[in-house]
Amino acid sequence: MSSEDNSRDKVRQRRVDRLEKRWWVRKAVNLFIVWHLFCLAIWLLPDHSSSPSPIIEGSLGAVRPYMTFTGFAQSWSMFSPEPDKLDVTLEAEVSHANGHIDHWFFPRMAHMGYVRRYQEERWRKLVENATHGSNPGLWPPLARYAARVNNYDAQNPPVSVKLISHSRLIPPLGESMPPYTAVPLQTGHGPSITPIRPEDLR
């Protein structure tokens, strides 16, 4: 290392030291800490009251963009307040142009070996998100994906897909497991049937 490099390092170190000692740097970090802790509390602590607290409601508008943009938006409650009891798998009923129907299941963890299910767990999460909450927005993309997977004959492409959930509720301890019930996913207008356009198959 040349003496020029040496002195450059010393200058750099002095600059860092000076910066750390400056009152406004410490103040800025303090402000950030207070703000961040406030956001964490608003974002992570549960609100048990039937009507949400006005403080939380009022603050979320400011807190949400900060939490989502920075990637601090963690919200998980580890199977609470109630654990998930819905055992569900998703079937796609793929109708082809000639009237033929394929029945295709989204990958199921229970049918996989231990290693593969570790790699493929994303499918479970996706199906859970599509069927558990209010995420009907996921149904058309899932239907289009099922159509692409089952588009094996260019002369006879898929024309529509109906999504059917096969589900059952895990019974309390000591009771026997009920059979699965197959029910098409329902929109406000009936079963969710996604028409497939040629561009959806690309």
């Binding site: 602590l45 549960p46 048990h48 409650s77 580890m78 199977f79 609470s80 307040p81 109630e82 654990p83 998930d84 009891k85 055992d87 569900v88 798998t89 199921r108 963890m109 229970a110 479970r124 199906v127 859970e128 895990i170 309390p172 301890l173 497991m177």
Partner: peptide, 23 residues
């Protein structure tokens, strides 16, 4: 805290369900 608001956690049976979800 969220668990203390759930019936199955309070009655001590919540852990049964995730352990029996085949997926």
């Amino acid at each position: 805290l969220s668990k203390t608001g759930g019936e199955k956690w309070v009655n001590g049976t919540a852990a049964y369900y995730p352990l029996h979800l085949p997926e």
